[in-house]
Design a protein around this nucleic acid. Structure first.
Lengths: 258, 258
DNA sequence: TCAGTTTCAATCAGATATGATCAAAAGCAC
DNA sequence: GTGCTTTTGATCATATCTGATTGAAACTGA
């Protein structure tokens, strides 16, 4: 047994680290050192190099996959909640997408779930203001148009007045929107710039579909993001209060509770 | 040339090396020397040659199959070469960034290296058309503005006429640009839409700094992306041909070879 | 807030790999 | 065979990698 054969090359170690992170999204230095059979010092050196190459992000105690959990805790924390419901809602929304369509995908975790289902649909065109949606389509997927704007880190979206000039040049068959809260008075969200962009988008879509899990139904946030009559369809989950659903229907909005 | 016998021997070795790497993706010099029954010195010479031909990537201790371990995705394939140079170029470029600046970061791996150095600089504003740059700043970093447009997957940038309306509203102190090739006639790149966006950006910057490793110097690609007089500074590495550098200087461009 | 614990970066020495150099070996032309 | 060129393998100084150590920094829980 030759000693050099036992020890991994740096490139080999980095590959294994990449694999570990692909599986777990996050790993501790100590874990990786144990798995690789290398010292923690070497693992750290590899992590520094890999971070420099943009392959991961280092955090105290370990590393996380880029674009993964822990990368943007605020955004992804929400994602983790009600995963089942969001998935079902996204599946229902998928039925509203046809090949050849021009659609808009808003920010938000439910809409992101829908985006993940579109990576094998090159025949549609997606416009979005969501960094996460763009990342989802980075390698392959629909024709992707990102409306510009200023990055709002908490939601990982591009918002503000700079989004306007581009948005005003395009129209959509269907806009799939997320929201923080929706009542019969309309949608509300936390950030004025975000709200402004949302309203503008909905005005430019032939059909607006709101994806809102039951916790959003009846909830109210800081700033109005458009009246309810902008919305054609609301897709929510079966835990949504019957009363609210009926109220929406009375206002002429189609509601699907999946 | 009738030296066919020697060449066959060398070619044979290289062929075996290629086979080993096809199987394992990564191999040590010592291993390969043992398998081939040749000295490590010979193996190294073969590896140098094969790397020159782009058949593999050399790492300390051995070699990696291209497209294999530690080799980065499509976008970064070219990047894997000249990592050191790109890093040094980016470091030199960093000196041109002041707090409070409004800068533009183009797509391209060298510019991306610069972006990674700016993640702890919240006091500047960065506009970019690069998805990779936006991702780099997703968690923290400068104020980030993404100019919209259509996603061009091969470069991971947003380009085309939809970028225009937003770009025409903003100005930059400094634009850091990448390129596929640059000569005294100006810059060239592979894609017309990409070129269009580049030209527009350079016209809106008070100062344009071109980051181009030596392989770009003197290279020519498909479509013009602006004349040389748009550029104020070129930062390249010391392997850039003296003649070209002098020609650039004669045209009034400041050239830094780091 | 604070103390205790974990993790980190910097440094060092030993091990390993590398490039440069050079002489021997092999191929080739005559 | 001789003379020339190319290739090869060995040697050695230098560069790089690795793992251990240590003081500093960051995190944790009360």
């Amino acid at each position: 047994m030759i000693k050099s054969t036992e020890r991994d090359l740096a490139a080999e170690r980095m590959d294994k680290i990449a694999n570990i992170l692909r599986d777990r999204r996050i790993a501790r230095v100590s874990e990786m050192a144990r798995i690789l059979g290398a010292s923690e010092a070497s693992v750290r050196r590899d992590l520094v190099e890999m971070e420099r190459r943009g392959l991961l992000r280092r955090v105290h105690g370990g590393a996380v996959a880029v674009g993964g959990i822990g990368d943007e805790p605020v955004f992804d924390d929400k994602t983790a909640m009600a995963v089942r419901e969001k998935q079902r809602i996204a599946e229902a929304a998928l039925a509203f997408v046809k090949n050849g369509d021009f659609i808009y995908l808003d920010g938000g975790s439910t809409v992101l779930a829908l985006a993940r289902m579109l990576t094998d649909r090159p025949r549609i065109t997606v416009a979005t203001n969501s960094l996460r949606v763009a990342q989802t389509f980075a390698a392959s997927g629909p024709r992707t148009i990102l409306v510009g704007g200023e990055l709002r880190r908490i939601s990982q979206t591009f918002v503000g007045c700079l989004s306007r000039p581009l948005l005003e040049k395009i129209h959509f068959d269907t806009a799939f929107m997320g929201t923080v809260g929706v009542t019969t008075d309309g949608m509300t969200t936390t950030d004025p710039a975000e709200a402004d962009t949302k309203t503008l988008v909905m005005g430019r879509a032939a059909r607006v579909i709101l994806l809102a899990d039951s916790r959003k139904i009846g909830a109210v946030s800081f700033v109005s993001a458009g009246a309810l009559d902008l919305v054609d369809v609301i897709i929510t989950d079966s835990a949504a209060p019957r009363k609210q659903i009926d109220a929406f229907r009375k206002k002429g909005v189609r509601v699907l509770a999946v």
